[in-house]
Nucleic acid binder design. Structure first.
Length: 702
RNA sequence: CGCGAAGUAGAGCAGCGGUAGCUCGUUGGGCUCAUAACCCAAAGGUCGGGAGUUCGAUCCUCCCCUUCGCAACCA
């Protein structure tokens, strides 16, 4: 789209179950904010929406964890996140929330329209139900023994011990985490969005039309999803926290959070329109609107596949681009909330922004570093030492220093006023600098349009570097020494300082989208109003008029001291230790004895002794062995993840204990009909559980 | 396993068919207006490994190794 009438820019809705860290900030918020500030400077019609995502099972879970209500959780984190974004100069036009009535209405209308148009399917399935709590259980609420690794702490969706994704049906001894009781199976109906029907559309839209203008990582991800076969996705679920499904027969059901959350962009736009007496409709329905979603890579599938399908069915416009960022690691390791290896936005705000020598400059320092290392093409690394280097040797030494020396010299050599430009005596250096200023505009503009924020910011800093080089060549402080014998030399000084001052004004315009607080400080020093920052002024050389007197210089940035970064690194490492200590205890107490079960539960498991008659390694799998086990009445194929511990030839003829009534399961394409019981010592070494003396195959174990 | 992304100077990254580039760091020199800032120069890489296509490959193709992500009721 070459010249859209209006822009709607979104940043991923942060989930209101905890504070967000700098990885989120670098991924979805800062890039969007830069883009929006640039568009605003161009006087474009742009709305920037965001808000808290407040539904889904994780909210009630977090409430239980903190011993409070879901409502209290979302109120707490909504306010906290909103505040943090504000403290870091995020310029949302609205920061909304999905718990607002206007959002519920919008999401329900969305569902109704799709349902009435016959675009949704219903399916009846059996799901676990907790009779005591009288509720269907989300996968996360079911705990049991992992069929893969035998850990008794697996959840219905995933085993945290071995990492395997599970479905609740696979769990051995499923237990409700709400009541501790064994849940029963109960029939329930759900609505599904059949993505498969839209494969052709997605292929054309993404893999054809956008294969060149979207980031390769984004197209790659989408391709992976499409090639993998698009399954129907449930859009409802049995839960009492969320947007009620607007149908009589759907009592007790809510919209699945992934369905309602992106609609939050629309409801936020509606609320913004009400607040500002505007019409929201063109922003979502007019073809001349450019919609851009800024997200992290975990969100690609929702914003490139699922939400666009929803939008298409609903008759809305599609995103023009989804410039997703990859992930930001921290000091050599993945950021992780559960391991407490992270830097929360809040922590930075407290340790830097709110300190006495903090303020807007510290906000901009973080924005600078995060933009400079933004994971635009691949995962990148936040290093405290890198942060210090970037601030001290680029922001302070190159950019800040250029502005500062310009101001000091201007006061010393030009009486604190903007000097005249003597066009007759412009030399090559002057002309080259003028050319650079004009070029910079085109370059930065083009990079921003392509969402290459890191490079665009580099161009800005590089322009100030060119200012330093220029000044070094012109050496006005040397020229000034010859003034006594050659008063004409003042003209050369005037030209140099005039150009440096105009360059500074241009730098303010260019840096503004990235570092708005810095731009503000520069405006103050130049004694000019915000209007100077209009993008149309960029590249011009008459921004500060001759004779205008300017303020005394003030430093734009302070340096980051060594002690500050060593403190942060210490803090990070000690946080990690604190998390590890209590966790160990927890495992201990829990692993000694599992929760009590009834004899009936035990009796449901059929254990028999079998003899391994053959064993072979499974092709292209590190851990798997394919075993044939003689159980007396039959010989079964069992696939077991023990290849790292035993060689196939070693174990033929050995007797083992087998769970014989475990549901069959395919691994590497081979159906496994049972499970071998193993004992694991604390080093992770496995041993077979077997009778002391050989017994006949098929003997019962009880 | 599969799919996707990535492996390039001490560190962080760019380039993606035609003598390897940027920032920081290191070393040497210059300057002194400037936040021990600035400017100039140098050292430093057989572009993960192997094979192929090509007149020519870091860049294309194939295989292998390593890292990260995804695999769909995970929001």
């Amino acid at each position: 789209m070459t010249n859209p009438k209006r822009y709607l820019i979104t940043s991923a809705l942060p989930y209101a179950n905890g504070l967000k860290h700098v990885g989120h900030l670098a991924g979805a918020y800062i890039p969007a904010d830069i883009y929006v500030r640039y568009l605003r400077a161009q006087k474009r019609d742009v709305v920037f929406v965001c808000g808290s995502d407040e539904h889904g099972t994780a909210i009630p879970i977090q409430a239980t964890k903190e011993g409070t209500t879901p409502r209290a959780i979302i109120d707490k984190y909504h306010e906290a996140m909103k505040q943090d974004f504000e403290d870091l100069s995020m310029s949302f036009d609205i920061y909304h929330r999905t718990s607002e009535p206007i959002h519920h209405e919008t999401a329900q209308e969305f569902f109704t329209r799709l349902n009435n148009a016959g675009e949704l399917e219903t399916k009846e399935t059996e799901q676990y139900f907790d009779e005591e709590a009288k509720t269907f259980l989300a996968d996360r609420y079911i705990k049991g023994t992992c069929p893969n690794c035998g850990s008794d702490r697996a959840f219905g969706d995933q085993c945290e011990t071995c990492g395997r994704t599970l479905s609740p049906d696979e769990l051995i001894n499923p237990v409700s985490t709400l009541s501790g009781k064994t849940p029963i199976k109960k029939k329930t109906t759900h609505w599904y969005l059949p993505l498969g029907k839209h494969e052709q559309f997605l292929r054309e839209w993404i893999l054809e039309q956008h294969k060149d203008d979207w980031r390769s990582t984004v197209v790659g991800q989408c391709k992976s999803w499409i090639e993998g076969g698009l399954q129907s996705r449930a859009v409802t679920r049995d839960l009492d926290w969320g947007v009620k499904v607007p149908l009589k027969e759907a009592e007790g059901k809510v919209l699945y959070v992934w369905f309602d959350a992106p609609i939050g962009y629309i409801s936020a736009t509606k609320q913004w329109a009400i607040d500002n007496k505007k019409d929201w409709k063109p922003y979502w329905q007019d073809k001349d609107t450019k919609l851009v979603h800024f997200v992290g890579k975990d969100n690609i599938v929702f914003h490139c596949i699922i939400f666009p399908v929803m939008l298409k069915l609903h008759g809305d416009i599609l995103p023009e681009n989804v410039p997703a960022n990859e992930f930001l690691n921290l000091e050599g390791d993945k950021m992780s909330t559960s391991r407490n290896w992270k830097l929360d936005m809040r922590d930075y705000i407290i340790d830097f922004v709110k300190k006495e020598n903090g303020g807007g400059q510290c906000v901009d320092m973080l924005r600078y570093y995060l933009t400079q290392i933004a994971p635009e093409t691949k995962d990148s690394e936040f290093m405290w030492k890198g942060f210090q280097d970037a601030v001290n040797s680029e922001l302070v030494s190159i950019f800040g220093n250029f502005v500062n020396r310009t101001w000091v010299l201007m006061h010393k050599l030009c009486g604190g006023k903007v000097p005249q430009l003597h066009t007759g005596i412009l030399d090559d250096n002057d002309k080259i600098l003028i050319g650079e200023i004009e070029n910079a505009k085109t370059r930065i503009e083009s990079l921003l349009e392509q969402y290459k924020f890191r490079e665009a910011l580099y161009e800005v800093i590089d322009l100030s570097r060119k200012g330093n080089q220029y000044m070094q060549k012109k050496e006005p402080w040397i020229v000034a020494k010859k003034l006594a014998e050659n008063p004409e030399a003042q003209k050369s000084i005037d030209n140099t300082m005039y150009l440096c001052l105009q360059l500074t004004a241009n730098l303010a315009i260019f840096i503004n989208p990235f570092l708005p607080n810095t731009a503000k400080s520069m405006l103050y020093m130049m004694k000019v109003v915000d209007k100077l920052l209009d993008w149309e002024n960029a590249g011009k050389l008459k921004l500060l008029s001759t004779g205008y007197s300017l303020r005394e210089p003030q430093l734009l940035f302070r340096k980051i001291e060594d002690t500050e970064i060593t403190e942060q690194i210490e803090k990070l490492k000690s946080g990690l230790k604190q998390m590890e200590e209590p966790k160990k205890e927890e495992t201990k107490t829990e692993s000694v004895v599992k929760s009590e079960i009834q004899f009936d539960d035990f009796a449901r498991i059929d254990l028999k002794v079998g003899t391994i008659v053959s064993a072979e390694k499974v092709e292209k799998a590190d851990k798997l062995l394919k075993l044939s086990v003689d159980l007396g009445f039959e010989t079964r194929t069992i696939v077991s993840g023990i290849a790292l511990h035993f060689k196939p030839e070693e174990i033929v003829g050995k007797q083992v204990t087998v769970v014989t009534n475990l549901a069959p399961r395919k691994m590497r394409g081979i159906e496994s009909n049972g499970m071998i019981l193993m004992a694991e010592d604390k080093n992770g070494k496995l041993q077979f559980l077997k009778p002391e003396n050989p017994v006949s195959p098929g003997s019962n174990v009880s």
